[in-house]
Design a protein around this nucleic acid. Structure first.
Length: 185
DNA sequence: TTATGGATCTTCT
DNA sequence: GAAGATCCATAAA
């Protein structure tokens, strides 16, 4: 985890991400991620240095960086790299395995894979918001990560990142091949 | 089936 | 003042 986002990203695939809010547990397997490095990555929030908002990204590896975007959406990142290095991995999609009813309830009128196949969708399904900013994903009781499924190299597909306008040419998005929950085809 | 507008926060120019 | 690591509802084709 204390390595660059690029190294950690594929390692996160297959991990289980869980939240426990108001005594309700929801969890899912990470099937899609994107790496954001501190240096040489124009698309990263940390490219222009530290600010109040991205401060957590410069914190210790394993922290939870939640940011708000487009006026109404939250996204979750796993902070990687050592203290002072602003790199993180954006979690783009998960496959629900626990508390699916709660997720459906949080995301009304949505069905099938649409519940969690996008960065803003999965945060909504898991109930993640600013409250969880800065939580330690390895020891927190409200949101945490744990190994779940072994993902082999041959199952991992790599491609360009999504929804950004800079550094598009970098193939820093990783996802599990043929997984129905991956956000983009 | 594809296109467009809306929501309305944080940071940067 | 504008743009952004977005998604959804609604409208048009």
């Amino acid at each position: 985890m204390e390595q660059g986002a690029l190294k950690v990203a594929p390692y996160l695939l297959g991990m289980k991400l869980s939240t426990r809010l108001d005594g309700r547990v929801t969890s899912g397997i990470i099937v899609e991620v994107e790496a954001y490095e501190a240096k040489g990555d124009e698309a990263s929030h940390t490219f222009r240095g530290e600010t109040k908002r991205n401060k957590i990204m410069f914190g210790a590896a394993g922290l939870c960086y939640v940011y708000f975007t487009y006026g109404m959406h939250y996204c979750v990142n796993v902070v990687t790299g050592k203290q002072g290095v602003g790199s993180a991995v954006l979690i783009r999609a998960i496959e629900p395995i626990q508390g699916e009813k709660i997720m459906l309830n949080r995301r009304k009128r949505v069905e099938g894979t649409r519940i969690t196949n996008g960065p803003a969708k999965l945060t909504q399904a898991l109930g993640i918001d600013k409250e969880l900013l800065g939580e330690d994903l390895l020891s927190s009781k409200r949101i945490w990560l744990e190994p779940f499924r072994k993902v082999t190299k041959s199952e991992i597909t790599r491609s360009a990142r999504i929804g950004i306008s800079k550094a598009k040419e970098l193939e820093w998005r990783f996802y599990i091949k043929d997984n129905a929950w991956v956000s983009k085809s």
